[in-house]
Write a protein that binds this DNA or RNA. Structure first.
Lengths: 165, 165
DNA sequence: CGGAATGATGCGATACGTTTGCAGCAAGGA
DNA sequence: TCCTTGCTGCAAACGTATCGCATCATTCCG
């Protein structure tokens, strides 16, 4: 349960496809389920369960947080939805898609930089060289500083050193 | 608060040094504080705040979990203690030390593989090549499968494919 | 189209890890 | 030894996530 299962992603690009996938699986298409799908489609980026329950900040119908979590889990098992944990805070959920579905999470500004999984192959290779460890960045992404924040921090480091807590 | 500060580590190897460091900083040496230090020294590996509060499973005096957290934070600011989050579950705390203080966390068996920070330089370089992103593995380590678990999973994948949920 | 079966909902309770408020205590200086 | 104030212990609250359960509504089937 703590480990993301090795399941095959199911890519959908609109609500109709998503609904078809749900129906095809034998699951019922309920309004709560549909709302989760609609929110994920509308957001087009990783969002939290609470974002969905809140109706994306009031722009959509609200729903019960417990049902949202249950549906995210169900849709995850179906292969329609993925989620990951980027540092502190709630998990982030996204619809499965083709390309960019791994992330670099900036711990300073909170930005999520989407990258294609294959672009991290070299990184995984480097880790594997150490001891045969197989790094997996899909459920716990790489955390650090995006280029902007790294630059800011570097140029500020002279001053910061003076009043470091 | 969500970002680990860039502070200089203070390495101590025994209780006396730890106590001296606390005293030298102007902080009071209370019994609760001492207990945290003793537990970290006794454990010799990353442990949770609850482990400390429980007296390492009854082998030491118990203490209040809130005070443990407060002291871990205080000792962290002092540079004596670090902590990180390896996947799900509570944060793990360790005394600062010289060598191995970054980790590879196996999401299958829970093992923590300690590595020297410099051995991850190549990994950080590979990430930087992508977009200038500066990966930091000290607060959110690399998660994946240790060599053993990766091997088990590989040899089991033929069978697993049959009854995949 | 109506009725039965059961998957799904909504709500509250619960869990877990962590933080905070606060009254009282005790470490360390005078 | 007393005083100051940092620190404690306890309880409560927090954010994220899960679960129990009675009720509801989707889907199937006739």
């Amino acid at each position: 349960m703590t480990v993301s299962p090795d399941r095959q992603p199911v890519v959908v690009t609109d609500l109709k496809e998503a609904i078809d996938a749900v129906r095809a699986s034998g699951l019922r298409l309920t309004s709560a389920r549909r709302l989760v799908l609609e929110a994920l489609l509308a957001a087009r980026k990783p969002i939290s369960a609470e974002d969905i329950a809140d109706g994306l900040g009031g722009t959509m119908t609200e729903s019960d947080i417990a049902s949202v979590y249950r549906n995210l889990e169900t849709l995850g098992e179906l292969g329609l939805v993925r989620h990951f944990h980027a540092g502190h805070g709630p998990g982030r959920y996204v619809l499965e898609d083709f390309g960019e579905h791994e992330y670099l999470a900036c711990e300073s500004c909170g930005a999520l930089e989407a990258v294609e999984p294959s672009s991290l192959d070299g990184v995984r290779d480097k880790v594997r060289e150490l001891s045969g460890f197989e790094a997996r960045f899909s459920h716990f992404p790489i955390v650090g500083l995006c280029a902007d924040c790294a630059k800011k921090r570097k140029s500020a480091s002279g001053r910061a050193a003076a009043h470091r807590h």
